[in-house]
Computed example of a mutant assay.
Amino acid sequence: MRSDEIAGDERSGAVMASTTSRVRARDDDRADVCGLIDAALADGQLSSDEHAARTAAAMKAEYFGELDKLTWDLQIPGAFADTPVVRGGVRRRTRWWIPVGVLLVAALLGMGAGCVGSAADKTSGPPLPDLTTGAGQAYFIDRYRAEFGDTVADDLTIYPGYALFHRSTDNPLKSQYYHFDGDFDEFGSESARKPTTPTVDFGTVNLPVLARLLAGAVDSVKVPNGRISHMSLALPSGSEPDAAPLVSIYVRNEAQDSGSMEIAFDGEVLEVSPLRK
Score class of each variant (00 low, 15 high):
242 D>R: 13
160 P>F: 04
155 D>S: 14
162 Y>E: 10
170 D>Q: 10
218 V>R: 11
196 T>N: 13
253 N>G: 05
158 I>M: 06
173 L>Y: 09
155 D>M: 09
152 V>K: 09
270 L>K: 15
175 S>E: 12
259 G>F: 05
169 T>C: 10
191 S>A: 11
181 D>K: 06
192 A>P: 01
241 P>C: 08
209 V>T: 15
190 E>D: 10
243 A>R: 03
138 A>P: 04
168 S>W: 08
147 E>R: 12
228 I>G: 07
190 E>P: 04
237 S>P: 07
259 G>V: 01
172 P>F: 00
178 Y>C: 01
200 V>W: 04
189 S>Y: 03
167 R>H: 08
153 A>S: 12
197 T>M: 14
239 S>R: 10
201 D>M: 06
188 G>T: 01
219 D>Y: 10
213 L>C: 05
262 E>R: 15
157 T>P: 00
149 G>Y: 00
241 P>G: 08
210 L>A: 05
269 V>C: 09
146 A>P: 00
222 K>N: 10
226 G>E: 01
161 G>Q: 02
241 P>M: 10
147 E>F: 00
139 Y>F: 15
245 P>M: 11
201 D>G: 03
216 G>T: 12
228 I>L: 10
199 T>D: 06
240 E>S: 14
210 L>I: 03
159 Y>F: 14
229 S>I: 09
146 A>Y: 00
205 V>L: 13
193 R>P: 02
207 L>V: 15
185 D>R: 08
164 L>K: 12
257 D>G: 12
216 G>A: 11
195 P>T: 13
194 K>H: 14
177 Y>M: 05
179 H>Q: 09
266 D>E: 06
220 S>Y: 08
183 D>M: 04
180 F>H: 07
250 Y>F: 15
215 A>D: 15
193 R>S: 11
146 A>F: 00
231 M>H: 07
155 D>F: 10
154 D>P: 00
176 Q>K: 06
176 Q>A: 12
199 T>H: 05
227 R>N: 08
146 A>G: 01
214 L>E: 04
253 N>E: 05
253 N>M: 06
157 T>S: 13
243 A>S: 15
218 V>E: 09
245 P>C: 10
230 H>T: 01
238 G>I: 06
255 A>Y: 14
231 M>W: 07
145 R>H: 08
267 G>V: 07
185 D>E: 06
168 S>F: 09
229 S>C: 08
264 A>W: 03
170 D>G: 13
211 A>Q: 09
233 L>D: 00
258 S>N: 14
178 Y>G: 00
253 N>Y: 07
182 G>D: 03
137 Q>V: 11
252 R>Y: 05
181 D>Q: 10
251 V>L: 02
203 G>N: 05
191 S>Q: 07
160 P>D: 03
207 L>E: 15
246 L>R: 15
245 P>N: 11
158 I>Y: 07
151 T>F: 00
168 S>L: 11
137 Q>S: 10
251 V>Y: 05
180 F>C: 03
138 A>W: 08
138 A>G: 10
201 D>T: 06
148 F>L: 01
235 L>R: 12
187 F>L: 13
154 D>Y: 00
224 P>V: 01
240 E>K: 15
225 N>C: 02
169 T>E: 13
159 Y>A: 04
154 D>L: 06
136 G>D: 03
242 D>E: 15
266 D>M: 05
148 F>N: 01
154 D>N: 12
